[in-house]
């Protein structure tokens, strides 16, 4: 028992309070520490003395998030995949928030924060990738236990004519233009071999043949990351900021423009289907 612990133990007889007091005004961590005037520890390495010369910003990001120092090829792959998740297109929901923030002359940080939050969505963005990894983990486990693809798919509801499986709900007639380029650079970087990706490709083939459905690029990318040993929580964290550049493109496009320049709405452009106007009753 350290002197500090002895002091805490003597201060109160309540074990719960003593436990809390050990963390009161005290942080104990392995993630790192800033040593002002000297250097910073990052997951057991020196930031300026070691990492600055050796690794990319993406490697540093993954190191901070997961504690893993990934190979340069995987870092390059991660950077390339961001090409597929952040477009300068005002119609994408998170980007609309960027445009609205720009049009309202909010700060760029507010725009990115709002856009990144918007992409924390079950339908697209970082949360969708978290859900995709969770689904793939479960389906792969059942597949390894002997279930057929037909059995795996049978449990999912059908929406818009295709089984609603996160990452695989894309109608086959609307091809995901990102898949082939992603397959190509994944092969070139030597990251295309792994059980999750193989399973994912086979599942997508089954869906194409029997359900007119296909995977999207997110499912492919999630499978690659799973083969690289990342779990759903880590993928969620790694993907958090992926939409930022598209949001900022839209923000900048509208910043400084006249008020209400972005998709102005007439009153009647918001369709009201509620109760008709009525008199306020007396109390």
């Amino acid at each position: 028992m350290t002197d500090r612990d002895k002091h805490i133990a003597s201060a109160t007889g309540d074990p719960a309070v003593e436990q809390l007091d050990r963390r009161r005004r005290h942080i104990r961590t392995a993630i790192g520490k800033w040593f002002g005037g000297r250097d910073t520890r990052v997951r057991g390495r020196w930031l300026l003395g070691d990492l600055l010369q050796e690794i990319s910003v993406t490697q540093l990001k993954v190191l901070n998030i997961t504690g893993r120092l990934i190979e340069p090829q995987l870092a390059t792959w991660l950077e390339k995949t961001v090409f597929f998740t952040s477009y300068p297109d005002h119609r994408i929901w998170c980007n609309q928030l960027g445009a609205l923030a720009g049009n309202g002359a909010a700060s760029p940080v507010a725009a990115v924060a709002a856009g990144v939050l918007a992409a924390d969505s079950r339908a697209y963005g970082s949360l969708a990738q978290y859900l995709t990894v969770k689904v793939l983990e479960e389906l792969y486990r059942r597949y390894c236990a002997g279930e057929s693809f037909a059995e795996l798919v049978a449990g999912f509801p059908v929406r818009n004519g295709v089984p609603s499986i996160s990452g695989f709900a894309r109608p086959v007639k609307i091809a995901d233009e990102r898949l082939e380029p992603m397959r190509q650079f994944t092969r070139e970087l030597g990251l295309a071999d792994g059980p999750y990706l193989s399973f994912t490709e086979s599942l997508a083939e089954h869906l194409r043949l029997h359900h007119q459905a296909d995977m999207n690029a997110a499912a492919y990318a999630c499978a690659v990351l799973m083969d690289q040993g990342f779990n759903a929580t880590e993928v969620y964290r790694i993907r958090t900021m992926d939409v930022a550049s598209g949001v900022l493109a839209c923000y900048g496009d509208l910043y400084g423009s006249t008020a209400q320049a972005f998709l102005p709405q007439r009153c009647t452009d918001v369709h009201y289907d509620g109760v008709s106007p009525r008199a306020l009753p007396p109390r």
Partner: peptide, 15 residues
Amino acid sequence: TTKLCLEEPAATNPY
């Protein structure tokens, strides 16, 4: 679409 709020436009400006 919304059930929460109806906005009636002014006769002179639909916005």
